[in-house]
Design a protein around this nucleic acid. Structure first.
Lengths: 114, 114
DNA sequence: CTGTTAATTAGCGGATGTGTTAAATAAACC
DNA sequence: GGTTTATTTAACACATCCGCTAATTAACAG
């Protein structure tokens, strides 16, 4: 099980419930119960989702009596952003993409003269 | 099984082998064998990874005799990019706050004379 | 001490993911 | 037709994920 940080982060993001939790936390800290409220799902299920987000470093839990106020930690998202960087040119600059595509295409298969 | 596009894309990205395949394809099209070459893994395993990438719409396979030239399809990455947008402002804002914090911190702690 | 609230853990079942080897398909080569 | 090459599918094993309910821990309130 040699799971790298990026894989753990992507796996954590690959669930709509967890992304909804992140979206909620982006608007401010919240307790586990507050996070669970909008979802038609048991509390333990939400608790497990939070654990996944925590393991990915996307969420940090504090302690306030019996409450565990959760906070969004954007650092792993920045890692995702950095990973995306080289691919971003593919869909932001289509002319460059076409040019590069042609460049990689031309020298591999030299046209024969006729 | 109501898997949304974004979840499928994130799940596809949550594997280092698949990300390596995408990185390879970013430099030009390649056949399944070419994509498999750098990995210490059986060909069927690579074939399945490609299927996952295909299902996510990240890769499109063509047909050239017995070869299946694979091409990178950046559209789902753009969706990820769009999803990231609100969070991106979040963590740049956070960095700004950090910068400001450091700025306001420096003059408050003047070196004591001796 | 007792009861209430917040949250986690335990244990179960079912689905999915990931790797293997062996067999099958498909198109080229001779 | 028969062989080689590229790729996929089948069948199996094993682990993880994801939901549930029931039980447990932790901290407050009276």
């Amino acid at each position: 099980m040699i799971e790298d940080q990026l894989s753990v982060t992507f796996a954590a993001l690959a669930d709509p419930t967890r992304r909804a939790i992140l979206a909620r936390l982006a608007q401010g800290d919240a307790t586990v119960n507050e996070l669970a409220a909008p979802h038609a799902m048991s509390l333990p299920a939400i608790s497990r989702h939070l654990k996944v987000l925590e393991r990915a470093g996307l969420v940090v839990k504090g302690r306030d009596a019996q409450w565990r106020p959760c906070r969004l930690e954007p650092a792993p998202l920045r890692e995702v952003d950095d990973w995306m960087a080289p691919y971003r040119t593919f869909f932001t600059e289509r002319l460059d993409r076409l040019a590069e595509h042609l460049k990689t295409m031309l020298p591999t298969e030299p046209e024969e003269q006729r």
